[in-house]
Simulated assay, not measured.
Amino acid sequence: MSAVENRYTLREFVEQTQQRDRGEGFFEMESPRILEVNLKSNFVWTKMGSMISYLGSMKFEREGMFDKGLGGFFKKAVTGEGARLTKVTGTGKVYLADYGKKIQILRLENQEIVVNANDILAFEDTVSWDIKMMKRISSMMAGGLFQMTLSGTGMVAITTHYEPLTLVVTPDQPVYTDPNATVAWSGTLQPNFKTDISFRTLIGRSSGESFQMEFVGNGFVVVQPFEEVYHVEG
């Protein structure tokens, strides 16, 4: 059989796309858009609906309404699907993806990062978390923005549409971002909101440039070349 005839066979397809053990540890990148989580005696929090396959014996448990106390109950009552979590326990491998978005793995070392809740894919059980709503922006956007604060030590996987860009914030160099394109920022920063009245006359732009997030201090901000639209569960 010629080299040309060997192309596009089922064998070639399987060899090129099959799962591979790379020995990278708890989180392993199967591809830029598929995350492998290796579970043994621990568990992992995942974005609800992100599981695409698993090997072994797994249990999937949706986060309870009262798991974070009474305050957590009220948060979940108005939180969109992007902020819902599933607790995965068992022994084996679970594969996660989120609409083909690119995956970024971060290792926290007694650090804190704030992530748009819709852009969280998974995080280790050793990482502490909390969900908050950005109230000052909720009246400006459909559904507002929910942010998840992750702190401590452990692995975190976030997603971005296409390649992310990280901007360094210093006291003499603030950073301004479109809320719909903002993915994450360091826990040392607290965003403010700046409205630019002059942009409100632009036709076809209901938000975006008409108001921005302002980051001042020392830290970093992650943005993506895509503007997400957020909705609240009915």
Rank of each mutant, 00 (worst) to 15 (best):
A3L: 12
N6D: 09
R7T: 07
L10S: 10
R11I: 06
E12H: 03
Q19R: 14
R22S: 06
R22K: 13
F26N: 03
M29N: 01
S31A: 11
P32G: 03
P32L: 07
P32A: 05
E36L: 02
L39T: 00
L39E: 06
S41A: 15
F43C: 06
V44F: 01
T46P: 07
M51W: 03
M51Y: 07
S53K: 08
E61I: 11
G64L: 03
M65E: 00
K68S: 09
G69I: 13
G71H: 07
F73W: 11
A77S: 13
A77I: 09
G82F: 08
A83P: 00
Y95H: 07
L96Q: 10
Y99V: 07
G100D: 08
R107S: 08
E109Q: 13
E109C: 02
E109N: 15
N110L: 01
Q111M: 03
V114L: 05
S128I: 08
W129M: 09
K132V: 14
M134N: 13
R136H: 12
S139P: 00
S139G: 12
M141N: 07
G143M: 01
G144N: 06
T149P: 01
S151P: 08
G154W: 00
G154R: 05
T160R: 11
L167E: 10
V169A: 12
P171A: 07
N180P: 03
N180S: 14
A181D: 05
S186P: 01
G187Q: 09
T188N: 15
N192F: 06
K194S: 14
T195P: 02
I197D: 04
S198Q: 08
F199C: 04
T201V: 12
T201R: 13
L202R: 14
L202M: 15
I203M: 10
G204F: 07
S206K: 13
S206Y: 08
S206Q: 10
S207W: 05
G208I: 02
F211W: 15
Q212G: 04
M213K: 03
E214Y: 09
V216E: 11
N218A: 14
F220G: 09
V221N: 08
V222R: 05
V223T: 15
Q224H: 04
F226G: 02
E228C: 00
V229A: 12
V229F: 11
Y230R: 11
Y230T: 15
H231M: 15
V232W: 01
E233D: 12
E233G: 11
